[in-house]
Write a protein that binds this DNA or RNA. Structure first.
Length: 570
DNA sequence: ATATGACGCGCG
DNA sequence: AAAGCGCGCGTCATAT
């Protein structure tokens, strides 16, 4: 059952449609629901006995789902038309379709002009009078408009490239992306279990007692005093890179920047306290008491995840730096009493994805090892694991200089297919072309300005043009691997959500997904349910591999840690 | 006073 | 040790 949900004057409008997007012949007429009724109606439709839950079709999951979750209502499935539209508008698998031709494509160089086939968004259905003026200014999508959009997307999908299962892959990507949108809202609603007392203890250990706001903590103040003495700069503010640079130069420390690694080249006695200051200062400003006040409440850290926030398909986040929780404070992420944190990580995901994409059977042999880098080292680098890792990551990122660049020929000799694959992606990008992930997410085309930049008259312009082209080549080279890894992770996450919901539904395990970071998930589970969850995580990983690549001999192992505290996970 | 960009550093 | 990719965010400095 496919149910369209659109904002309406005082609530929502609901309409049953066919899979293709036509009004359903049995019940073609829309149904109007007040905002206060909505959660109850959705709950009812989700829980009808002996009936499969509906597939909700809405413009943006973020506009509807948070309010439903707040009312205690989860939904099983949805299509997020906005996210689907963004993929379909660019996907090379659907480039020939009418949908792609009609989509308003803006170059992605300007983040303000992300293409939205449905723009602007309708306001949340449950917002009060505060938003009334906004509502009047932003045209909302009617049911008819949403239905037309959905029908157009379905038509594009039906018309997508059939060869090598590309259509199926694209369909899978659209479903996984929509599942991701639900998961993002659910994880934000649940939040990461966060012990404020443990966080405060960590801060006290590193920085001293909490200072009045606007003041440096004791340990930072002491280091600052020491620095001022050692650098003969009584008024120095080490937080100012310019001041700091001048003070360093006055003392004969000739650095071009104040970056850590450059400072470490010097053996001046001020360097050690300076690096210590920078480290602690970072903790204080990024994840100190102010952060705790702003982002943690009632024992939970509830960041917003932005699905589709990265062109490669990775998620971004807003608020609290959710994707950068530093190791220093991971001890504050702590399971509730009687619960465990299950932290699972897809080992060496991107290199394994490259193996599968390139169908490099030689590298696949190395990937049979639990430690892929060790396998590569044994085959082509005289057992030197560090070298093998640097070489392989360099191939994925497009390293040209340094050790990584020097190791490339050696890697290419042993693995011509894998290296050839990323080289081809780089050449496509350098030529202004587009590359596509396993499931059909394509890189944005270059802007017109990019093509203009490639037309050069003078030798100087030519050099500049080549540098810009190479930079784009590094982007597309990385895009296919990072993006296909994101494809895999999206399927992993969606499959895991399905399994955890099943465990919850049969009453056996009340486990929740609480965190996701590119190739890592965290599940918060009652102790008795840990084994079932670990199984679900591993099964979901195997399912994701099968969905993307079918029965190929490449493993995607996950390493699972069952811990009380996140800092014990790795 | 507020917006913007560079820098530096956290994460994968 | 950083490098080659993708991000968010706090700070300082500068422009408006």
């Amino acid at each position: 059952m496919y149910l369209l949900l659109a904002a309406h004057a005082h609530g929502a409008a609901l309409q049953q449609v066919t899979q293709a997007g036509d009004p359903h012949p049995d019940r073609p007429e829309p149904r109007l629901i007040s905002a206060s009724e909505l959660a109850g109606v959705v709950r009812h439709l989700e829980n009808r006995p002996r009936e499969a839950p509906p597939r909700w079709i809405w413009h943006r999951t973020q506009d509807w789902y948070p309010a439903l979750l707040a009312a205690g209502v989860e939904v099983d499935r949805c299509y997020d038309l906005s996210l689907r539209g963004n993929i379909l508008a660019y996907s090379q698998f659907a480039a020939h379709t009418e949908y792609a031709r009609n989509a308003e494509k803006e170059p992605l160089d300007d983040p303000q002009e992300l293409p939205r086939t449905l723009q602007p968004p309708p306001p949340p259905a449950d917002q009060g009078a505060l938003f009334d003026d906004v509502r009047q200014r932003t045209p909302r999508h009617t049911l008819a408009e949403l239905r037309a959009e959905y029908a157009a997307q379905q038509a594009a999908l039906a018309d997508a490239a059939p060869e090598e299962n590309k259509r199926k892959r694209l369909q899978l990507l659209l479903a996984a992306e929509s599942a991701g949108a639900m998961i993002a809202a659910e994880m934000q609603h649940t939040g990461v279990p966060w012990r404020e007392d443990l966080h405060e203890q960590i801060l006290a250990d590193y920085l001293g007692p909490r200072p009045p706001s606007g003041h440096r903590p004791a340990k930072l103040e002491a280091l600052n005093t020491e620095l001022r003495g050692l650098l003969n700069s009584p008024g120095l503010n080490p937080d100012s890179p310019q001041e700091l640079m001048r003070a360093l130069h006055r003392n004969g420390i000739e650095v071009k920047s104040t970056r850590q690694w450059e400072l470490m080249e010097s053996s001046h006695p001020a360097i050690e306290p300076l690096l210590a200051y920078k480290k602690l200062s970072r903790l204080h400003t990024a994840n100190g008491w102010a952060w705790l006040d702003a982002w943690v409440a009632n024992g939970r850290f509830q960041p917003e995840y932005v699905v589709g926030g990265v062109v490669s398909g990775r998620w971004a986040s807003r608020g609290g730096g959710a994707l950068q929780i530093p190791r220093q404070i991971r001890g504050a992420v702590h399971a509730d009493p009687g619960h465990k944190l299950i932290v699972a990580d897809a080992s060496q995901l991107e290199p394994r994805v490259l193996v599968a994409l390139a169908q490099d059977s030689k590298m696949a042999e190395a990937a049979r090892d639990k430690d892929l880098y060790a396998g590569i080292a044994a085959q082509g680098f005289g057992g030197d694991r560090a070298k093998a890792k640097i070489a392989l990551l360099g191939a994925i990122y497009g390293a040209t200089t340094g050790e990584s660049g020097r190791l490339m020929p050696q890697l290419a000799r042993t693995y011509p297919r894998a290296v050839g694959f990323v080289e081809q992606a780089a050449r496509d990008g350098e030529a202004g072309g587009t590359v596509t992930t396993r499931l059909g997410r394509s890189s944005p085309p270059p802007s017109e300005g990019w093509f203009r930049s490639q037309q050069s008259a003078t030798a100087e312009e030519q050099r500049r043009a080549e540098s810009i082209a190479r930079s784009r080549g590094r982007f597309t080279r990385n895009f296919v691997v990072q993006g296909s890894a994101a494809d895999w992770a999206a399927c992993w996450l969606a499959e895991l959500r399905r399994r955890l919901r099943a465990l919850r539904a049969d009453g056996s395990v009340a486990a929740e997904l609480v965190f996701f970071l590119h190739d890592e998930v965290m599940v918060h589970a009652p102790e008795a349910g840990v084994q079932a969850c670990v199984r679900a995580i591993e099964e979901a990983a195997a399912a994701a591999k099968e969905l993307l690549f079918g029965p190929i001999p490449v493993e995607f192992p996950v390493s699972v840690a069952v811990v009380d505290s996140y800092d014990n996970a790795k």
